[in-house]
């Protein structure tokens, strides 16, 4: 554990809490992509299968349980409790176009051809692109509420901080995982355009509105 890794995990946790607060307080999931949330739930469930096979630390187990349960809770709020507010007309991204290539890539490029390892690799590839339906939704509606912007910023920062963690670990521990680093770099790059808009607009008190 180093400061970048801890900050990354906390940023990830903050993102999830912000999203739940937004949905709960506004009693609405307008502007949130259910497709991205489905993908994130798949990411956590397929990645954390090792919960039952490998014990790493109490912190690790606790965080995994938090990520799985909050992603399921988010889906419940979106698809059951506040279903009427779900913006399904704009949330039209076809997730099979992400799921299938990620799965094929995990079958081809992985570190061990076992069920748990392939699903872990699949989850890493899928996480890299899981935000695309959300970014697609924002681009379709042309705007995002400020709390949704904060959510996206915290969620994007998390993998960017992990990149710093991986650089640190490479030098300090000679530890590196090429699959995670490659996917994490792609994931962070996908947020760059959003980061730019967030810093130039939302932090100056303006609403995130895309140029027409």
């Amino acid at each position: 554990m180093n400061i970048f890794r801890l900050a990354g995990d906390l940023s990830h946790l903050l993102a999830i809490i912000l999203l739940l607060i937004k949905i709960w307080k506004t009693r609405s999931c307008a502007g949130i992509s259910g497709k991205s949330q489905i993908l994130f739930a798949i990411v956590y469930i397929t990645r954390y299968l090792d919960l039952v096979t490998t014990f790493i630390s109490l912190y690790n187990t606790f965080m995994k349980l938090v990520f799985i349960s909050t992603s399921v809770a988010t889906l419940y709020l979106m698809y059951v409790k506040f279903k009427a507010t779900y913006d399904h007309n704009h949330d039209s991204f076809r997730i099979e176009f992400l799921l299938i290539p990620c799965f094929v890539l995990a079958l081809l490029i992985n570190t061990a051809f076992t069920v748990v390892e392939i699903l872990w690799t699949f989850s890493i590839y899928l996480e890299a692109v899981a935000i695309l339906p959300q970014l697609f939704l924002v681009s379709k509606t042309g705007e995002a509420e400020s709390i949704t912007s904060h959510y996206l910023f915290a969620l994007g920062s998390y993998r960017a901080l992990y990149l710093l963690n991986w650089i640190y670990r490479y030098y300090a521990e000679a530890h590196y995982d090429p699959i995670a680093i490659f996917a994490g770099a792609i994931q962070t790059i996908l947020y760059c355009d959003f980061f730019y808009l967030y810093i130039t607009k939302v932090l100056k008190g303006k609403k995130l509105q895309l140029p027409a």
Binding site: T53, T54, I56, S57, K64, W120, N165, H175, D177
Partner: peptide, 10 residues
């Protein structure tokens, strides 16, 4: 603590 088998990151 780091582990050789398994993934210690989230």
């Amino acid at each position: 603590a780091e582990v050789d088998d398994g993934h210690d990151e989230l």
